[in-house]
């Protein structure tokens, strides 16, 4: 099906995210105004007005009631999704890079940038119920020592996984703040980290032109997906053994690059064999962020070109994926 090309943002997209039901897509951009769209027709539902700088990240809660945003205006905010009003603003000394709800939506994690002589910090706040007063005191803050682009809660909120600028993934205990693990795999900045639905696996996207699939229990790399360009975002399909990767030449060198050399496409890899299955073109700049629809029947991409593209898979995607699966199973049985 022809994708919806959403024109609403005035500058590059930083993140795109489905809500749990998959009917809404939230997008943040360098233009400081997060948008929310209907996934099924691409119409804009509304905007969240108030930030005064790039919005780097957002996170929507289980019931699609509250949206967290992290912005370069040194604040992270809570918004009421229903009417787009601001409920609370957390103030920091440096730009906020990451905002992430915990499971159960009682806690939120924020990460701030390391600039102007300040370290990068991981903050965890207890978030008040709707209608109750919100405290501005964090439960804890933790100096990270270097820039961190992405942070995610593990299952049962036991720990927080941080993708670091040096290519490592650092795991902190959410209770004691102890560093539980330091995972070395990537050779350059980790741009994105996201868990599978059951949170037993996670995938990382890195500037080193690869994405890696990890086993949570053993902290080992299960598979590596290689491309020729920096990978900005990677997601695991909820229904097939597929992963999608998005990226492209850095924004810095794009202008000097032939658009076909830059290869601005969302790339599908087979999760098991590390083989590239195909690609979806459309963006004319690097792809900054990707999200799979929760039902696995489509995905949304946000690009440096300022467009959000919502894709719904054609039937051929399912028939081919099913055929592929069947063939493998038959081959395995024949052995």
């Amino acid at each position: 099906m022809k994708p919806f090309m959403l024109q609403g943002h005035e500058r590059s997209i930083t993140t795109v995210q489905y809500n749990r039901e998959g009917d809404l897509v939230f997008s943040t951009s360098k233009d400081s105004t997060p948008h929310v769209w209907f996934a099924d027709n691409g119409e804009r539902l509304g905007t969240f007005d108030g930030h005064k700088g790039t919005v780097w990240d957002c996170s929507v809660d289980f019931m699609t009631e509250r949206l967290l945003t992290a912005s370069a205006d040194n604040t992270a905010r809570i918004w009421k999704v229903e009417d787009g009003s601001q409920m609370h603003a957390f103030e920091f000394k440096t730009p906020a890079r990451v905002a992430e709800w915990s499971e159960g939506n009682k806690l939120a994690a924020f990460v701030t940038d390391r600039i102007m002589g300040h370290d990068a910090y991981l903050y965890v706040y207890a978030i008040a119920e709707m209608g109750e007063a919100q405290s501005s005191e964090p439960l804890f803050e933790l100096g990270l020592g270097m820039k961190c682009q992405t942070a995610r809660w593990s299952a049962l909120n036991q720990s927080i996984y941080c993708g670091m600028d040096d290519g490592s993934v650092r795991v902190f205990d959410a209770e004691t703040q102890q560093e539980l693990a330091h995972l070395d795999g990537h050779r350059a900045r980790v741009h994105d980290l996201s868990f599978s639905d059951d949170k037993q696996m996670f995938i990382t996207a890195s500037k080193d032109k690869t994405a890696m699939l990890w086993d949570v229990k053993s902290n080992a790399v299960i598979r590596t997906y290689r491309t020729e360009h920096p990978v900005n975002s990677a997601k695991i399909s909820p229904i097939y053994d597929h992963v999608i990767l998005g990226g492209g030449q850095d924004a810095m060198s794009v202008t000097t690059t032939h658009s076909r050399v830059g290869k601005f496409q969302v790339r599908f890899f087979h999760a098991v064999y590390e083989e590239e299955l195909g690609g979806v073109t459309g963006h004319f700049g690097p792809i900054n962020y990707l999200d799979f629809a929760p039902n696995g029947r489509g995905f949304t991409s946000g690009g440096e070109d300022g467009y959000v593209r919502i894709h719904h898979f054609d039937d051929s995607y399912y028939t081919q994926a099913e055929e592929f699966k069947l063939r493998d199973e038959i081959a395995a049985q024949m052995e």
């Binding site: 809660d61 289980f62 019931m63 499971e103 159960g104 939506n105 009682k106 299952a155 049962l156 909120n157 059951d198 949170k199 037993q200 696996m201 086993d215 229990k217 299960i222 598979r223 053994d241 999760a271 098991v272």
Partner: peptide, 26 residues
């Protein structure tokens, strides 16, 4: 990969009740 997934499914099942309870608390 399948063996790994089988193990992961078992791990996920072991914490499924606790996780569901936590997530649904929202």
């Amino acid at each position: 990969y399948r063996d790994l997934c089988t193990r992961m499914e078992a791990d996920a099942a072991a914490m499924a009740d606790a996780r569901n309870a936590l997530i649904l608390s929202a």
